[in-house]
């Protein structure tokens, strides 16, 4: 899949490029159609549409780091190419699966926050799916550990919860 994308990115390189500026100050060049997938960038470009030279526009994305953007951009690009063709939903799903399968928990979270901020809803949907999958059938302790959530219940409340739904604490799957 990677090889096919590289060839197509060559063909689309004639398109207009937009520069995105990440939270850590990196500038990334992307095709305009990719940039338009990001809500804040889209709004920014619409506001500055009178500027003749797109190359000159630098869109600041102060809530996303370069590391995350560099993950997102190839995904969005390929996803756009896929959805432009009359391909089956299965293929898109396979592509999404491949993208998310090896994401670390950390990356998953960062991507989710970024996708939420950038308004990339199809990615957000996929990521929510993956997160739900990862906390499914797990014990409460595992979920807390997985997401790094502090347990803010008082010991009495916790005891009450345990009494009400003991299975929740037993961990259905092997963690």
């Amino acid at each position: 899949m990677a090889s096919s994308s590289s060839s197509s990115s060559c063909s689309s390189s004639s398109e207009k490029k937009i520069t995105l500026k990440s939270s850590d100050g990196e500038a990334l060049n992307v095709e305009k159609n990719v940039a338009l997938e990001f809500e804040p960038a889209k709004g920014f470009l619409e506001d500055n549409s009178e500027e003749a030279d797109d190359e000159a526009i630098v869109v600041p994305l102060p809530n996303v780091s370069a590391a995350v953007l560099s993950e997102l951009i190839p995904y969005v690009k390929q996803r756009l190419e896929l959805s432009a063709k009359p391909v089956q939903k299965k293929l898109i799903k396979a592509f999404d699966d491949q993208f998310t399968r090896h994401l670390s928990d950390d990356k998953l979270g960062e991507l989710m926050l970024a996708a939420n901020y950038l308004g990339v809803n199809y990615l957000l949907d996929v990521l929510c799916d993956v997160t739900a999958d990862r906390i499914k059938n797990k014990s409460v302790e595992y979920v807390r550990e997985f997401l790094g959530i502090q347990n803010d219940f008082t010991p009495e409340e916790e005891a009450e919860l345990r009494a009400q739904c003991p299975w929740a604490f037993e961990g259905v799957d092997q963690d």
């Binding site: 929510c128 799916d129 997160t131 739900a132 999958d133 906390i135 499914k136 059938n137 797990k138 014990s139 409460v140 979920v143 807390r144 997401l147 959530i149 502090q150 347990n151 803010d152 219940f153 919860l161 739904c165 299975w167 929740a168 604490f169 259905v172």
Partner: peptide
């Protein structure tokens, strides 16, 4: 995305 009510009750026990 959670389709099982067990999972929902588990999540309800994670934090406030």
């Amino acid at each position: 995305k959670l389709t099982d009510c067990n999972d929902i009750s588990q999540c309800a026990a994670v934090c406030l």
